[in-house]
């Protein structure tokens, strides 16, 4: 089994870190193979940012994603730029406060894309009181919807990655995303 995830947003949202945590959860704790790579512009903040993770039971040679199974868009620009690469029947997760679906509804219908909306930025700001953990809320959402990594491994990877002293807040953020109801 091989799964490809692409997370797109803008610099400063923690897009790259969320890919790192998912990749780490798969490689070190779920004992699968994974590769995380990224691309970003020369700007420190505000430019387009993209993080990609490949998770596989087999060895991964080519490290770049061609047609993701899962696209996570936390900016409108990322949604417009990357949605057409999604596999038929693929999963699209968006923060509807930052990316608007109306423009791509035709593509969604035609390719039978499964769309999930999660207001991760709002949840991070209002429930956790910390806007910068929106990316961790999103990891909770991704874990819930895709089952690509296990909950245990996700939490271990978060604790292993985030700065000391912030573990509790980050786990709370993960849980807030994981506990959302998508049915």
């Amino acid at each position: 089994m091989k799964k490809e995830i692409r997370i797109g947003g803008f610099g400063g949202q923690g897009v790259i870190l969320s890919g790192v945590i998912i990749g780490k959860a798969a490689a070190l704790f779920d004992r699968k193979n994974s590769i995380q790579s990224q691309s970003y512009g020369p700007e420190a903040r505000g430019g387009a940012s993209k993080s990609e993770v490949i998770i596989s039971d087999e060895e991964i040679n080519y490290p770049k994603i061609q047609n993701p199974d899962v696209l996570v868009a936390i900016s409108h620009e990322a949604l417009l730029k990357y949605h057409t690469d999604l596999k038929r029947n693929g999963i699209l997760i968006v923060d509807p406060d930052l990316a608007h679906m109306s423009e791509i509804s035709e593509f969604i219908e035609k390719n039978e894309i499964k769309v999930y909306q999660a207001k991760v930025t709002k949840i991070a700001t209002e429930e956790i009181g910390l806007r910068i953990v929106a990316n961790i809320v999103m990891i909770g959402v991704i874990t819930k919807i895709t089952n690509i990594i296990s909950v245990d491994s996700a939490k271990k990877a978060i604790i292993d990655t985030v700065p000391k002293g912030t573990e509790e807040k980050n786990i709370k953020a993960f849980d807030a995303g994981y506990n959302l109801d998508f049915n």
């Binding site: 790192v20 780490k24 490689a27 994974s34 590769i35 995380q36 790579s37 490290p63």
Partner: peptide, 9 residues
């Protein structure tokens, strides 16, 4: 850049 920036086990 690719080898420098990508993450693997």
């Amino acid at each position: 850049e690719i080898v420098g920036h990508m993450r693997e086990r």
